[in-house]
């Protein structure tokens, strides 16, 4: 079939409501909505500080139809460990405990707690929706910010100097049972990965690229397109990693698109020279090749 007829493959029930406070075109609520469709109502969400702390709605509202615990910035994985432990004591092995954290809460301030939980192989699903900077506080750089990007703390005259932290490699080194990357542009892929993760016991990590119109500086309507382009130009490879050692690509074709259009349609990269884009491309290519070696070693 030539069309991706996904209507039948996406559950119709909604565990999220309208009226949430995400900016127009934000991918983060969409990511949550899709993930919850795959997880179903027997889910408890633990949420450290992030854009989603606002998106979830101010007291006395909630945009989720599942229990949600807002927790401190660096404590997502630790708080979830406690929730899991309590459920275990209540004999509830079926409810999924999901951490929903941004890149700051995952790559930076929450990394210690995440590492601890992953090392203990806590039975939690940790989802990082990655918008590549501290967006809720006004676009400051995080260790998920790509090299060369403008943020409000890396001005265009001195843009981000470090390459993005390879968070899935960090998690893979913990040898947790399941790691996957996904984007909102490929809902079925995302849902399948969440369903797979749901069925596994132990720490599961899902890295979801989440384009941010105001932070990346692109038009609201292009959110899905940006996520799609990020995959197509290999900036954000779609992957699965089992037990930290079995790597595989989950894209159904291995064509690659040029990087230039992806960078050029984002204001945060507007200052990049052709040489800098070439540097970016070589970063992307190098990482891709490194992943290819992991995949090859897995076969």
């Amino acid at each position: 079939m030539s069309q991706v007829m996904i209507a039948d493959r996406v559950p119709t029930h909604e565990l999220m409501t309208s009226g949430h406070l995400a900016c127009p075109g934000c991918a983060a609520p969409l990511a949550m909505r899709l993930v919850l469709k795959a997880l179903g109502p027997q889910t408890i969400v633990v949420m450290p500080a992030s854009c989603w702390s606002i998106i979830a709605g101010p007291w006395p509202q909630s945009s989720l139809k599942v229990p949600l615990y807002h927790t401190a910035f660096e404590t997502g994985a630790a708080t979830a460990s406690g929730v899991r432990a309590a459920l275990d004591m209540q004999g509830d092995r079926d409810t999924t405990v999901m951490v929903w954290a941004g890149d700051g809460g995952t790559f930076d301030i929450g990394l210690q707690a995440l590492s601890g939980a992953a090392e203990r192989n806590e039975d939690i699903l940790y989802c990082c929706y990655d918008n590549e900077a501290y967006m809720n506080t006004g676009v400051q750089r995080s260790s998920a910010t790509p090299r060369g990007a403008w943020t409000s703390t890396t001005p265009a005259s001195h843009p981000e100097a470090s390459a993005k932290k390879d968070i899935v490699a960090v998690l893979a080194a913990h040898h947790i049972p399941y790691i996957a990357t996904a984007t909102v542009a490929y809902p079925v892929d995302l849902l399948e990965k969440v369903k797979k993760a749901k069925a596994i016991r132990g720490t599961r990590f899902l890295h979801i690229l989440s384009p941010c119109p105001p932070g990346w500086k692109f038009p609201d309507e292009a959110t899905i397109e940006l996520a799609r382009m990020a995959v197509a130009c290999r900036v954000f490879p779609l992957l699965e990693i089992e037990d930290g050692v079995r790597w595989r690509f989950t894209m159904d074709d291995d064509t690659t698109e040029p990087l230039q259009p992806y960078l050029r349609c984002q204001g945060r990269f507007a200052h990049l020279t052709d040489e800098q884009i070439a540097q970016f491309q070589s970063d992307v290519t190098a990482r891709w090749k490194w992943i290819e070696r992991q995949v090859a070693a897995s076969e």
Partner: peptide, 25 residues
């Protein structure tokens, strides 16, 4: 009969207690 979490810091120890307590434990 308890779950004993050997966490990686006191900060996480308290966070885990909070999570557990919030879940009724």
């Amino acid at each position: 009969d308890a779950r004993f979490l050997k966490v990686e810091s006191e900060h996480s120890a308290m966070a885990a207690c909070i999570g557990a307590s919030a879940t009724g434990a």
